[in-house]
Write a protein that binds this DNA or RNA. Structure first.
Lengths: 113, 113
DNA sequence: TGGTATAGTTACGAAAAAGTGACTACGAAA
DNA sequence: TTTCGTAGTCACTTTTTCGTAACTATACCA
């Protein structure tokens, strides 16, 4: 799911940028606040450490989030939204609302956000 | 990517409903007009027949698109947006616009829509 | 009788994504 | 000197998704 440099349709790029099983969810947890790796790990249900690091790297390399290392002991790493990430927030909200509506009309239970 | 009946986060459901490599793109081509199977196949670059039928079935079963069979010879099948699909159009547009903006700022070429 | 067109299905394999568990580096504290 | 906590990495397996090619059904038409 690495970003290429040409697409036949913009939605193809959309999918590469924020598609996949986890990226939207990761972004969701960063909307409210920047978070450390461990906090994200704890917040996001069932995500594995490996996948979390992978997805964070991809989101970072596409400039949607940024990664800041603090030289504490042990090191802490903070992830936060960049300007691109911020510009995505309303869209994520809309998707979320649309989905909640869908869920409620179709008796699908959503236990978290 | 079948829709389950409970989720810990609404975005998990979002992904099941319209995530994956092809669903958004299929919907994109249905925004303008309803289309027959063959037209979709021709319009969507590089999609295989198998994947197209699979994805159409999933979108139909989640009531985002509808399928109508015309008893012509040979049969023609027309796919179109349902009310759910229609309600998704502005979100798809927004995603598309966001992505185009992203692409233009990052020298990513988009040859089609 | 054979060819054409639409809209599929089916079997198979390849590739991509995700999951698991063990491992590393760092320095502080016990 | 061993243990702890953060933030990973690495090798491996499983699962999911995607792609290819061949096949089906139907009925018209030549």
């Amino acid at each position: 799911m690495a970003v290429k440099n040409n697409y036949v349709c913009s939605l193809g790029l959309t999918i590469d940028l924020i598609g996949g099983k986890w990226k939207l969810m990761i972004l969701w947890y960063l909307i409210k606040d920047s978070k450390r790796f461990g906090e994200l790990k704890k917040s996001i249900p069932n995500i594995s450490q490996k996948v979390l690091t992978e997805q964070l790297k991809e989101l970072e390399s596409s400039q949607i989030i940024s990664r800041k290392v603090y030289p504490t002991v042990p090191v802490t790493v903070e992830y936060s939204m960049t300007a691109y990430g911020e510009s995505l927030i309303p869209l994520i909200h809309d998707l979320c609302e649309w989905t909640k509506q869908y869920a409620s009309e179709n008796d699908i239970e959503i236990s978290g956000d």
